[in-house]
Design a binder for these strands. Structure first.
Lengths: 303, 303
DNA sequence: GGGAAATATAATTTTGCATTATCTTGAATA
DNA sequence: TATTCAAGATAATGCAAAATTATATTTCCC
């Protein structure tokens, strides 16, 4: 492209003012800049656009007269493009309320927030952590537009649209040095007589228990706690075993104890992390953008 | 205008290749240049256009996907503008503005227009008739690119280039049956005491009078009129004689009277019809083509 | 864990654009 | 006719954008 939008702007201004000097004043630049831009255009196109009348300013040649409206049109197109492009970012500006299940949040939310902030600088995502009984309510009440949670918490609720993002196979958690930890894989039947530390959260509680019951096993629930890290600490301190979906980067508890994780031999239905939204509502552009980003995030995560 | 066509070109190339590196190769520039251009666009618009997938190149974000066709459209517009602008100088299609002295026009312009239209079908010649004081101004103001007029109207104007096309010896116009009409040739001295009907147009007026004065004759100006046909009618109705350059096909006036035309015995500088253009300006191809055709036309006319 | 591929970043050179000052030209004026 | 004035072109110079090369970083893949 031999010419620039800048040069076109100068050409149009000079044509409108009939003088390079006046155009330069209007553009708040110096007169030689405008002169040079016009001379360059004329050279590029091989056509004389203006007649120089010295003390009388400049007059458009027939060629210049024909070019003027086309230059205006191109500049107008450029302005439209600009506002359209700026609008892409602008429309996303604003706040998006998102809910997230507490145990999922630390694993993904921080990185999701960073990524979304980078891609959509004007967009402000506010994440509220909640339990499985609260999140669907929050969606329905309008407290959030999207929620990140486990599919087992939704059941057959027809009001919610759940988009699967990732699958997690539950695993068994044992204290380091536990006799069962020597096996590479464990069967739930091996654990039937062992004390279970249950993550005692709505839905999650039922989800874990149902994994046993599906195999005809009645687990011995020795401890119940609603805290994820408390589960890990209890297990690491020898109070029993547990079953979890998500696995932190280190098998180390807050109180410095070591854990051992073992996959489960028995075929279990995995837990699916889903992105949930209200079936009836039309999605805002912010929500669509967040959903798109989250989709990509988990696709990359799966690789 | 915060962005440039250059940046848009790089953006489109990167989107098409899916890689900055490949786009840079295709554009024959370095990879960081493309990276920087895209980063700048993203900054300008406040939107992320690409997902960086490191070893996997780049993928368009939803925003980038939306912007891509618009960027292509703007670039296409710019290309059209460019070819249009470049074509102004070269292509024969388009409009050529020509000025012509009023009394010359009816003798040549209609046939010139027909001929030019036949030879250059895409070319639109617009002729503006004017007087000798207006035509050079029109050239200098850019109103027309070429003008057809008498050489005596130019004088020593160094800004104008005049190309001779045809010479016309002035002749004497008498009413039918005038006593001087019996002579085959007339001397201006024979007319010194006769009433003169003067074609009263700038330059032309001075031109005719100077023919007499050059011979030491002071003509008797009985009537002045700026209308060519009025001169003929006044003469035909016995109000005097006149001197003209151009001779219509019939020596018959609008009011049905007969005229007699007689050549002049005295040696006079002929009137030259010239094609004039601005000395400083570069000629468009249309103007060159018109000039060439006009040259040929008058050469044939002289035969 | 190491190599390859892709982009980003850093440092440097080059180019383009802006500026000020000066020159040229034609028109208006005395 | 000489002078002054207005407008554009040209020249010299500084600065900022964009190009380049080289290097770092990240991820994939073996």
């Amino acid at each position: 492209m031999p010419f620039s939008l800048r040069q076109l702007r100068y050409f149009v201004a000079a044509a409108e003012h009939g003088e390079v000097s006046a155009a330069a004043r209007a553009l708040s630049i110096s007169q030689p800049s405008v002169s040079a831009a016009i001379a360059d255009l004329e050279g590029q196109f091989g056509v004389q656009l203006f007649l120089r009348r010295h003390a009388q300013g400049m007059a458009l040649t027939p060629a210049g007269r024909r070019l003027l409206p086309e230059a205006r049109s191109l500049l107008e197109h450029a302005r439209e493009f600009e506002s359209g492009a700026a609008g892409l970012g602008q429309a996303l500006a604003g706040t998006l309320e998102v809910g997230c299940f507490v145990t999922i949040a630390p694993f993904f939310v921080p990185r999701l927030l960073s990524g979304v902030r980078a891609r959509y600088p004007g967009m402000d995502v506010r994440v509220t952590e909640g339990h499985h009984e609260e999140l669907p309510k929050g969606l329905k009440s309008g407290a959030f537009e999207l929620a990140l949670l486990y599919d087992y918490a939704i059941g057959a609720d027809r009001d919610l649209l759940a988009e699967p993002l990732a699958e997690f196979q539950p695993y068994i958690l044992l204290p380091k040095g536990h006799r069962l930890a020597r096996a590479a894989k464990l069967s739930l039947t091996d654990l039937a007589k062992e004390p279970l530390v249950l993550l005692d959260l709505p839905s999650t509680r039922e989800y874990f228990l149902s994994r046993f019951i599906a195999l005809g096993i009645e687990p011995l629930v020795a401890h119940r706690t609603p805290s994820y890290e408390m589960v890990r600490c209890l297990v690491a301190n020898g109070h029993g075993y547990s079953m979890l979906n998500m696995r932190p980067a280190e098998d180390l508890t807050y109180d410095g104890k070591r854990l051992v994780c073992r996959p489960i031999k028995d075929p279990l239905v995995p837990a699916r992390v889903v992105l949930v939204r209200l079936a009836g509502a039309t999605q805002t552009r912010r929500a669509a953008a967040f959903a798109e980003f989250t989709r990509e995030f988990f696709t990359k995560e799966a690789d």
